[in-house]
Amino acid sequence: MLAKRIIPCLDVKNGRVVKGIHFRNLRDAGDPVQNAAFYSKESADELVFLDITATIENRKTVVNMVRKTAARVFIPFAVGGGIRNIKDIGVLLRSGADKISINTAAIKDPLLIKRASRKFGSQCVVVAIDAKRITKVKSQIAKCKMSPLALNGQAEGISLPAQQKFKTLTRNTLSAPMNIGARPRPSAYWGGHLTPSSRWEVYVNGGNTPTGIDAVKWAKKAEKLGAGEILLTSMDRDGTLDGYDIPLTRAVSEAVNIPVIASGGVGNLKHLYDGIAKGKADAVLAASIFHYRKYSIRQAKQYLRKRGIPVRI
């Protein structure tokens, strides 16, 4: 029987593993290769590296990290962050990554998923979706007054004009997707934009930019284009330790026929169980509970096994 996978996620910045809340307040958590070797020994089923620097200058650092890891660690791992095109994907796969994870680039150019899966096979194309619950327009605006904004990838302060800009954008996103790149808006040819029945919206640029795209529809579209897996992160839960967004995980997992990795919010072992049993996830991803050694992977597996979840022990 196919085992449910436990996947530690390593956020990497300038070659170091870091952990923060809502992509902010980053704390150092060590060397990526050492971390990977440790988790492999601990019987982690797979690893995900997310390069949160994701700048063009930083590509070399990432490729070096991938090569070093692949030479020492013999379990599958995925790499995401800052991947823009087929060339980036090819370099990472040839350097020893088993999978690549694309997020913003796939929203900007959905056909990248198709080209990548044709060339390298679906099994290595992970589409990462950062999804956020849709609250009322008003409350979204209230939230943005309290926190710094970042639009189109550029961080901005809490100046009044920025707030005005965000208000306009927020309103617009609920009716029509904003233009986030030079390519045609995805909705222009596949109609994945938010509707009154939408419950989660896709965000890009490290969770900074709303897209006006419905997360469940986007997952289905990604599957159709050849994605081999969905890495689904709840932005509301990420870093909170409150558990996965179960309705989101379940909605996406039931909508697609490819494996779904639940991500964002794990604080204890029951959350992992809930992600699989209630959220119907095929794999569960967590970061801080493993990095700070609150639980070992083995403990997590024993916990799941006791409750009837098939795991590799």
Binding site: M1, A3, D282
Partner: peptide, 28 residues
């Protein structure tokens, strides 16, 4: 769900030096 992605058990059909040191029942 396709791809068949992840760890699964490989059941050996016969004895072979290739299986030396590997568990017969839970060879993931």
């Amino acid at each position: 769900k396709v791809p068949h992605m992840g760890w699964n058990v490989v059941r050996q059909r016969n004895q072979s030096p290739l299986w030396k040191g590997l568990p017969g029942r839970r060879c993931w």
